[in-house]
């Protein structure tokens, strides 16, 4: 059938692309271009009818299926090559774990979503809200021999969990960074410090200023006028410029009630804050040990130096003493 079709096309020299339902007659030439528009249209339609007939004939040679809606024809792929709209998507990059698992031959096993909880004798979720073995459900954790005394086991478990979550988050970011390097970032993820458009292939666009940033710039510009922007004509909706650079206030030093007391209160507050913040770190043990060690070492050094300098004077004496003793033997 295809052979026949090809033959037919050759004889009539009409190029047919059934995927796009197009027919092209490259050999047609007007004998004389009709000056009258109606005639031109008529001639074009005649030729068009011919071509459409060719397409329809070709369509009827294709395999068909009957449907309630009508006759359905299976079309081939288009032969006319047309450009893509966007580049080909890059395949997903395997994560570090996936690479490792592949190397070691580790395979994923499906786990049940719900697990039997022995403590409550019910079925519970493996992960998430109201899960099995949740720390918040257990009133008492039995102590073990290895436990450190004075440590809260609940907060310890909590900390460990937070650590695990943090580590996973770090790994995820690392994997995404690797993917971004190759340009295989998932379409919905954006890795950026600033507002880049997520669509397309991550093209950079100038960042729009926020309302506050614009206000800041306006304030800076206003500062250059003689009045510091005080008498500038305001735009509708423009807020008065924040006058910056005057934060320090000097309350009266003389003691008294109200404002007089303010200075003392301020100082108290700062002191209290400092003390309460570092109350447990007032003594830096490491530093203290270092200091004492250093001191001791210095002391010993000095002592050795002194002994060395004094012994040099006594050396000859010692030697003579030694020698004499030898002789005595």
């Amino acid at each position: 059938m295809e052979m026949e079709m090809a033959k037919e096309m050759e004889t009539s020299n009409i190029q047919i692309d059934l995927g796009n339902l197009t027919a092209f007659d490259p050999n047609h030439r007007f004998q004389s271009i009709p000056s009258n528009r109606d005639e031109l249209v008529k001639e074009c339609l005649n030729k068009g009818t011919e071509l459409v007939q060719e397409i329809v004939n070709a369509l009827f040679t294709l395999p068909t299926t009957e449907d309630i809606d009508g006759l359905i024809i299976k079309l081939p792929q288009p032969t006319t090559k047309l450009p893509r709209e966007k580049p080909l998507p890059k395949p997903k990059l395997p994560t570090k774990w996936e690479l490792f698992a592949q190397r070691k031959g580790i395979k994923n096993r499906k786990k049940d979503k719900v697990v039997f909880d022995k403590q409550t004798d019910t079925w519970k979720r493996r992960y998430g809200y109201d899960r099995v073995d949740d720390v918040t459900d257990i009133p008492i954790i039995e102590a073990k021999m290895t436990d450190e005394p004075g440590e809260d086991p609940f907060s310890k478990k909590d900390k460990e969990k937070k650590k695990r979550v943090g580590k996973q988050e770090k790994n995820r970011l690392q994997n995404l960074k690797q993917a971004a390097k190759v340009g295989a970032l998932p379409s919905h993820v954006q890795l950026a410090a600033a507002g880049l458009p997520i669509t397309g292939t991550h093209k950079e666009l100038p960042k729009k200023m926020s309302k506050e940033e614009l206000g800041d710039v306006a304030g800076m510009a206003a500062a250059s006028t003689a009045s510091g922007g005080k008498f500038d004509r305001k735009l509708p909706g423009e807020k008065p410029v924040k006058n910056r650079g005057k934060h320090r206030k000097f309350p009266p030093v003389v003691e008294g009630k109200g404002a007089g007391n303010q200075e003392k209160q301020q100082a108290d507050k700062i002191l209290k804050h400092l003390l309460s913040k570092d109350s447990h770190e007032i003594l830096n043990v490491n530093k203290a040990i270092n200091m004492t060690n250093l001191k001791g070492e210095k002391k010993r050094k000095r002592a050795r130096k002194e002994s060395f300098s004094t012994s040099s004077k006594l050396k000859s004496k010692k030697k003579t003493f030694k020698k004499s003793s030898n002789k005595g033997k």
Binding site: L40, D69, G70, I72, I73, T80, L82
Partner: peptide
């Protein structure tokens, strides 16, 4: 090529014959 791309619509695999009802005729005068 541009005209074809502009008007051809979606690439389909199955075509209902009753849906074959219009043609764009382009003639190089």
């Amino acid at each position: 090529e541009v005209l074809l791309e502009l008007f051809r619509g979606e690439v389909v695999e199955n075509l209902n014959l009753s849906g074959v009802d219009r043609v764009y005729v382009c003639t190089a005068v």
